[in-house]
């Protein structure tokens, strides 16, 4: 008989690191990441699975809204959050492109948006404008009007496809 419980221990590999933590089973993954693991780059912007600010990558490829998954569901899985994407002295091409193209203003949607971009580019390394807009339509941004985000995705795609030749310009 399967064991049921209200308190569980969750074991995940998060941004490359193995971690085990106890939590209430009703803990939403977004809060597990933010409050138990201190990964506050995971943001929460709604209660209806609408905004995508909480987007993280499951098992290296699947973008999910971490506010609509219970923490115990990811037991035994791998997760990537923005903290694992790149750091200030070693930016991921997507982060670099967001910076170069002014693809953020308040920054609240940015971590989720960047991970959605990563999932999109893994699936489609050369997306058109239309494919980018379609592919990112699970993520809301109230500030940028999306135009510069689309531009950033093109730049990131370019760099990820030709890692050696292109270099972004830092002003």
């Amino acid at each position: 008989m399967a064991v049921s419980s209200t308190q569980v221990s969750v074991h995940v590999k998060i941004n490359g690191q193995e971690i085990t933590k106890e939590c209430e089973v009703r803990t939403l993954l977004a809060y597990f990441l933010r409050e138990q693991l201190g990964l506050t780059g995971v943001h929460v912007g709604c209660d209806t699975t609408s905004c995508g600010a909480c987007t993280v990558l499951l098992d290296g490829k699947t973008a999910i809204k971490s506010c609509t998954v219970f923490a115990p569901q990811v037991d035994g899985h791998e997760l990537l959050t923005v903290e694992g994407l790149g750091e200030a002295d070693h930016l991921h091409p997507i982060q670099q492109a967001f910076w170069d193209c002014h693809a953020l203003q308040c920054g609240y949607c940015t971590p989720g948006m960047e991970l959605a971009v990563l999932a999109l580019l893994q699936r489609n390394p050369n997306p058109t404008d239309e494919e980018i807009r379609f592919g990112l339509s699970g993520n809301l941004c109230r500030c940028t009007g999306y135009k510069n985000i689309v531009k950033a995705v093109h730049q990131a795609a370019e760099i990820m496809n030709h890692p050696s030749t292109s270099q972004s310009v830092t002003l």
Partner: peptide, 17 residues
């Protein structure tokens, strides 16, 4: 380019919550 961006693009912004 914006000076505030490095913290936002890496998830190091510090918002209220």
């Amino acid at each position: 380019k914006r000076k505030e961006d490095p913290r936002f693009i890496t998830g190091q912004g510090r918002y209220l919550d």
